[in-house]
Simulated assay, not measured.
Amino acid sequence: MHHDYHVHSTYSDGYFIEFMATAAAEAGLSGIGIADHCVVSEDPAEDRYRREMGFNLDLTYERRRDAIERLRDRVDVRLFDAVELDYEPRDEAAIASFLEEAEFDYAIGSVHDLEDVNVHVRDYFADKSERERRALVDEYFEKLVALAESELFAIAAHPDLVERNPALRGLATRDHYDRAAAAFAESRTVPELNAGRVLDDYGALHPAPGFLDALADHGVAVAVGTDSHRPAAIEPRVERIDAELAERGLEPVRVMDVPDAS
């Protein structure tokens, strides 16, 4: 693992860029992507959510870009100026316009919401019936396929995020995985091997082994991201990703070498 394409800084819900970069270098990485959360939408509710959560990179990316540029000569790792955007099919035009304007090194797309509720909100989904929860997992993968087909992003982050929620965990099927893998096979968007929850109670990588098998069967490679929010998380997450790559005999995609990745 040479590059970690997905960490966060104080420009969303992470830590200072210099400390994240230093930790990446100490973990043996040669590149790190500062991919802060961002919400771009014409929906007033989404705009309120963005302001409440502080995911305002569309307003601050030039300031952050200046900080990254000034840090490049002070850290022993290549810094990428990236973004992690919440994806909703209804917001494609707004997202495309913002990405064209901002000209990041690359963009990561994430499906975070179902019924306009973040999938991490356990109580909301726990109150649903099994039929409703299965329908929500269907909706999640429909959005993931749409994300791949949109061609807006270089990377699709944690492509089975529903597994983090116990109420939705285990409901994805091989059919879900095959449909998503087929979409990625036809897209420039690369799914991410994500270590954002390997150190907590979930304790596993995204995507799940069955989804990784489906991606392999469709000839789809993966990019890698630790999804770290604090410096101390980077090294153990890198070690976990490296072990998975070695076990599967995988060489991750170097996103910055992919044509039209920015």
Results as ranks from 00 to 15, higher is better:
E186A: 13
N118G: 12
R188P: 09
V137H: 06
Y202I: 05
G219E: 01
S150F: 01
R134Q: 05
R230W: 13
A172M: 05
E192L: 01
L193A: 01
V137W: 05
D160S: 05
P159N: 02
L144Q: 11
A148H: 13
A183Y: 00
F141H: 08
L114Q: 00
A185H: 05
R240K: 15
N194E: 07
A208G: 15
H176S: 04
R237G: 00
R230V: 14
F184G: 00
E239I: 12
K143F: 06
G109M: 01
Y124Q: 05
L168I: 06
P236N: 03
A214D: 01
N194I: 08
V119I: 13
P236R: 07
D213M: 08
A181S: 02
G203I: 07
V238E: 01
E186M: 12
P166T: 04
N118S: 15
D123S: 15
L147Q: 04
L171A: 07
E142L: 14
A216H: 09
D123A: 15
T226C: 03
D175V: 09
L114R: 10
A204V: 12
E130Y: 07
A208I: 13
Y177K: 04
A135K: 10
N194C: 05
N165P: 01
A208K: 15
V119E: 07
R197G: 13
A181V: 02
D200I: 09
V220W: 00
R164C: 11
P231M: 00
E115T: 12
F153R: 04
E139V: 11
L147N: 04
I234T: 09
Y177R: 03
A180H: 07
L199I: 11
G170M: 05
R240D: 12
E139I: 11
A221V: 10
A214H: 02
D217W: 06
L212Y: 10
Y124R: 10
D201I: 13
H158A: 02
H218G: 02
D160Q: 01
A183R: 02
A223N: 09
D116A: 14
S228Q: 09
D175F: 06
E130M: 11
Y202D: 08
P209A: 04
R164G: 10
L212F: 11
V137N: 07
S228I: 08
R131H: 12
V220G: 05
E239Y: 11
A181T: 07
A182S: 12
P236I: 03
H112C: 03
D201G: 11
V111M: 04
D138A: 09
D113Q: 14
E151W: 08
A195K: 08
D160K: 00
E151N: 12
P207A: 05
E186T: 11
E132C: 02
R179I: 02
P159H: 08
A148Q: 10
H206L: 10
V190G: 10
H206A: 12
A195S: 10
E235G: 11
S129C: 01
L215T: 08
R164K: 13
V220L: 08
H112G: 03
V198F: 10
F141T: 06
L205S: 04
E142F: 09
A223G: 07
V224T: 13
D213S: 11
G196L: 03
T173Q: 07
V238W: 06
A204G: 12
K128C: 13
A135T: 11
L152N: 08
H112K: 00
D178Y: 12
G196I: 06
Y202N: 03
R230L: 13
V117F: 09
L171W: 05
A221F: 09
R169A: 07
E149N: 07
Y140H: 02
D200Y: 06
V222P: 00
